[in-house]
Nucleic acid binder design. Structure first.
Length: 271
DNA sequence: CATAGCACCTGAGGGC
DNA sequence: TGCCCTCAGGTGCTAT
């Protein structure tokens, strides 16, 4: 569910509210996430101060005052929200982190595909297995072109979704980005031109900025750090619009499956 | 080695 | 109404 814009929205919202706060209690109600919560997860967080809140790709990174980092990945259905501490446990509230001011961070995840871990700062890169952040200035047209040469046999859709190369894009935003760039999802990476690479980079920045400005896309599960809905779903040009008219040329949009993920594009506007 | 396919888990929605 | 099937924003393991 959450891709870069959703995670960025959560981080921007929660950052000012929780940085500097002390963790007073950690309650683990369900440790069986995709990767079982470490035995000492609660112990490593309790008594720690939350020094900084940041994001890399789809990971929320919370720096602790002991040099370690609390990693939060929301998987498909994860929610990471801050409440006043009075919330009674809802279904799928797996972890509750109480802060010194009485408020509480809740990790809720219906499908349990997410991940929570506390790791040494040096291990963050390895643990997240994440490439250059999609919003980083280091993700240039040249860098994307080079990556496309390295992965020539795969499709542009699969390349953009590969977190080891570019961190942050998921199924919704790759569909949207490729539409804006005028490139078909199944295009072989080896056939991407330098000009198109530039268009893809511009599209990534345009789409992500627009989505962040709207607080992300709330299709079904996503809420921000304060349980609020995003509204970028109303701006989607192609995602989940198979058969509906292209908003640019009016031709019916195509729906298909690429690398096992539902894919939407305009035959006329994308080549 | 790089890539494609499926499994993981729960709930919502459509068809009958 | 209720049952059954399909599908969902992600990713890691496995087979090719």
């Amino acid at each position: 569910m959450p891709e870069l814009p959703e995670v960025e929205t959560i981080v921007r919202g929660l950052g000012p509210a929780i940085t500097g706060r002390l963790v007073t209690e950690v309650v683990v109600r369900e440790s069986r996430l995709r990767e079982r919560l470490a035995e000492d997860f609660a112990a490593r967080l309790t008594g720690r101060r939350l020094v900084d809140l940041r994001r890399h790709g789809k990971f929320i990174l919370i720096d602790l005052d002991d040099g370690r980092v609390w990693l939060v990945h929301l998987g498909m259905s994860g929610r990471f929200t801050l409440g006043d501490g009075s919330r009674s446990a809802l279904p799928h509230d797996h972890v509750v982190v109480r802060l010194e001011d009485g408020r509480a961070l809740t990790y809720n995840d219906t499908r349990r595909f997410g991940r929570l871990a506390v790791v040494p700062r040096e291990a963050v890169g390895v643990e997240t297995v994440a490439g250059v952040d999609a919003l980083s200035d280091d993700l240039t047209a040249e860098a994307l072109y080079a990556a496309a040469r390295r992965h020539g046999r795969t499709t542009m859709k699969a390349l953009l979704m590969d977190q080891r190369e570019i961190a942050g894009l998921g199924n919704i935003y790759v569909n949207e980005v490729l539409f804006h760039a005028g490139v078909r999802p199944r295009r072989r990476a080896s056939r991407l031109t330098r000009t198109e690479s530039g268009r893809v980079i511009a599209a990534i920045r345009l789409v992500l900025a627009g989505a962040i400005a709207r607080g992300g896309s709330s299709i079904s599960d996503y809420r921000d750090g304060f349980e609020r809905f995003g509204s970028y779903q109303f701006e989607h040009q192609v995602y989940d619009r198979a058969g509906e008219p292209c908003l640019r040329c009016g031709e019916p949009l195509r729906g298909c499956v690429v690398t096992g993920r539902s894919t939407f594009y305009c035959v006329h506007c994308q080549r």
